[in-house]
Nucleic acid binder design. Structure first.
Length: 458
RNA sequence: GGCUGGGUGGCAGAGUGGUUAUGUCGCGGUCUGCAACACCGUUUACGCCGGUUCAAUUCCGACCCCAGCCUCCA
C-alpha cells in the first residue's frame, strides 16, 4: 500500500504521515472569525483542508476533525492594538455581537456545504471555552511566562529559546523593520493572552477573570481548544499560510510553555488565491464571495474544480477567464461520465497512478490530470465510470448525481424549433438556418444530435 | 528595510539533470446540409546573467520582477 506523505511547514519537508496514536489522526483547522462573510480566498483554504481530510480517510486512517469559530478577541491589529473585530463588525452590521456571530457562522457553514466540504466532527466556539482559556493562562502565569501591562496580560516570548521556529522568524530583522507598535510590551514578539475591557468601551462580550474583566487574546483559544479535543500534542494543525508568522507561532509558544510538549506533529498551510485587481481583504468589506460567483453564473462546484487545478502549496491566480475554463472542463467531465452509464470494475492502472500522485503531498493537479487521461483512454466506459467515481471520493464534484439540466423552452421558441425541423426535412436549408438565427436571438442554441434536436440556453 | 516563498507555452497550472503533464482558448481535421456538440491533431514553453556538468527549465551564485507576512486578511 502506498504511504501517505505530507509537507510539514515546521520542518519544511515532506514526511510520512504516521499517527501519534494507533490509527487515529487528529486534525485541527483554524476556522473563520465570524464578523463578516468569508471570501473565496478563505474558501480555498477550506477546500484544501477538505481534500486533506478525504485523502487521510482514503488512506485508511480514522480522522477526528476539529474546527474553531473565532467569535471574540480577534483584534483589528495583530500587534494587539486596535479593536476587537467582533465589536467593529457588530457596529457595521447593526446586529449585536452574539447574533452577528451566529449569523455569519451559519453563512459560513452554508458555503462549506455548497462546496461539498465535509463539516468537522467537532465545531468549537471561542466564547464557549473561556474557562479553558483562563486556566491555560493561569498555567502560563504559574510558570512565569506572563506579565501584566495596563491593558492586559502578555506572553513573554523571550522565555522560549526556539520562539518563531515555525516561521523562521528573524527577530532582529523584525526589530530593524521597526514597523511594529510595541506599546507596553517588553518585546516585539510578545502578545496578549488576556485583554482588559476599557472603562469607556462598553463591550458586548466580556468575562470575569483572575486579572479583571475583559476577554481572551486571539491565539489562546486555539491552544486551549485543540488541547481539549485532540490533546496537547496531536497530528496535524492547518490553516492559511498567513497564520505562520504570528497566530501559529504563538499557539506553539503557548502550548510548549504551558504543557511542555510540541503542539502538532505536522503543520500544513494553504496558500493564497491571488487576484489581480479584485480586493481580497475581508476587513475592507469589498471582496468576492461564493454568492458573487453564483450571481455570475458559476456553480460553487466550478470553483471547487478551479481549486483542484493548482497545488495547495502554490498561489493560484483567480480570474473570470480561469473560472470559465473550469466550468467548461467540469461540464465536459460531467457529460462524459453521464453518458458512460452504469459503473463496472475500477481500473487498477489508473487507480494506482491517482493514488501515487495524491499521496505525495496531495498533488491533486496531477491526480486530476490522471483523471483526464482516463477519460480520453481506451478503457471501456463502465471501467471509466467506476474509476472516475472512485476519484470523485476525493475530488468531491458530485459526479454520480449529475444529470443534464431540464430546460424549459418557451412556447414560441418550441414552435420555431418545430418549424425548423420541418424545414430540414424539406431540405429548405436557408429557411432552417434563418430559424436557427431567430432561436439564437431568443437565447437558445440548437444542436442537431442525429435525428434529435437538442435545445440549450445560451 | 527584514523575513518567507515564487517567476513555465495566449491563459491557468504540474513536473523533471537528457524522456508526453493536464485543462482551457486559438488553429487544422473528422462528423454535420451548413453549423453547434463530440472526437482527433496542433504551435513546442521554462525571468535575466554567470557557474557546475557530456548534458540545466531542473543544481549553485548574483541580479530583476511578483506574492505573502512584519498593519486588516485563509
Amino acid at each position: 500500500m502506498t504511504q501517505l506523505r505530507l509537507f510539514d511547514t515546521y520542518e519544511r519537508k515532506i514526511r510520512d504521515l504516521v499517527p501519534l496514536q494507533g490509527n487515529e489522526v487528529g486534525l485541527y483547522a483554524c476556522g473563520p472569525t465570524v464578523y463578516n462573510y468569508v471570501h473565496i480566498g478563505n474558501l480555498r483554504t477550506y477546500i484544501f483542508e477538505d481534500l486533506l481530510r478525504r485523502t487521510i480517510e482514503h488512506a485508511g486512517f480514522e480522522l477526528k476533525h476539529v474546527m474553531n469559530i473565532t467569535d471574540v478577541g480577534h483584534l483589528t491589529s495583530d500587534a494587539d492594538s486596535g479593536e476587537d473585530k467582533m465589536e467593529v463588525g457588530s457596529r457595521r452590521s447593526g446586529m449585536d455581537a452574539w447574533g452577528m456571530a451566529e449569523f455569519y457562522t451559519a453563512a459560513f457553514k452554508n458555503d462549506l456545504e455548497k462546496l461539498n466540504i465535509y463539516p468537522p466532527h467537532i465545531w468549537c466556539k471561542a466564547t464557549d471555552h473561556i474557562a479553558e482559556q483562563i486556566s491555560m493562562i493561569q498555567e502560563l502565569e504559574g510558570k512565569g511566562y506572563t506579565y501584566p501591562t495596563s491593558d492586559g496580560i502578555y506572553f513573554n516570548s523571550r522565555k522560549l529559546s526556539n520562539y518563531g521556529h515555525l516561521a523562521r522568524l528573524n527577530i532582529e530583522g523584525l526589530l530593524a523593520g521597526a514597523r511594529v507598535e510595541q506599546g507596553e510590551r517588553q518585546y516585539v514578539t510578545d502578545f496578549a493572552l488576556w485583554k482588559f475591557s476599557k472603562p469607556d468601551e462598553n463591550r458586548q462580550m466580556e468575562w470575569d477573570s483572575p486579572w479583571g474583566v475583559g476577554f481572551p487574546g486571539w491565539h489562546i483559544e486555539c491552544s486551549a481548544m485543540s488541547a481539549k479535543y485532540l490533546g496537547d500534542f496531536f497530528d496535524i494543525h492547518c490553516g492559511g499560510k498567513d497564520h505562520i508568522p504570528i497566530h501559529h507561532t504563538n499557539e506553539i509558544a503557548q502550548t510548549e510553555a504551558s504543557r511542555g510538549t510540541r503542539l502538532a506533529n505536522f503543520w500544513m498551510h494553504g496558500y493564497f488565491l491571488e487576484l489581480q485587481n479584485e480586493k481580497m481583504s475581508k476587513s475592507s468589506g469589498d471582496f468576492l464571495q461564493l454568492i458573487s460567483l453564483a450571481d455570475a453564473g458559476f456553480d460553487p462546484l466550478v470553483y471547487r474544480y478551479f481549486c483542484l487545478t493548482a497545488h495547495y502549496r502554490n498561489e493560484l491566480s483567480f480570474s473570470w477567464e480561469g473560472l470559465v475554463a473550469a466550468k467548461t472542463a467540469l461540464n465536459r467531465l460531467y457529460e462524459a461520465a453521464y453518458e458512460w452509464g452504469e459503473p463496472g470494475e475500477v481500473s487498477e492502472h489508473y487507480r494506482a497512478r491517482f493514488v501515487e500522485h495524491l499521496y505525495e503531498d496531495l498533488n491533486v493537479p496531477r491526480a486530476l490530470a490522471a483523471a483526464w487521461e482516463l477519460i480520453r483512454s481506451d478503457e471501456p466506459n463502465d471501467v471509466k465510470k467506476a474509476t472516475l467515481l472512485e476519484f470523485d471520493e476525493i475530488f468531491g464534484l458530485d459526479i454520480a448525481s449529475w444529470e443534464p439540466e431540464e430546460v424549459s423552452v418557451p412556447v414560441d421558441v418550441q414552435q420555431l424549433v418545430t418549424a425548423r425541423e420541418q424545414a430540414r426535412l424539406d431540405k429548405d436549408w436557408s429557411q432552417a438556418d434563418a430559424l436557427r438565427e431567430k432561436i439564437l436571438a431568443l437565447g437558445f442554441i440548437i444542436e442537431d444530435a442525429g435525428d434529435k434536436t437538442k435545445i440549450k440556453p445560451v
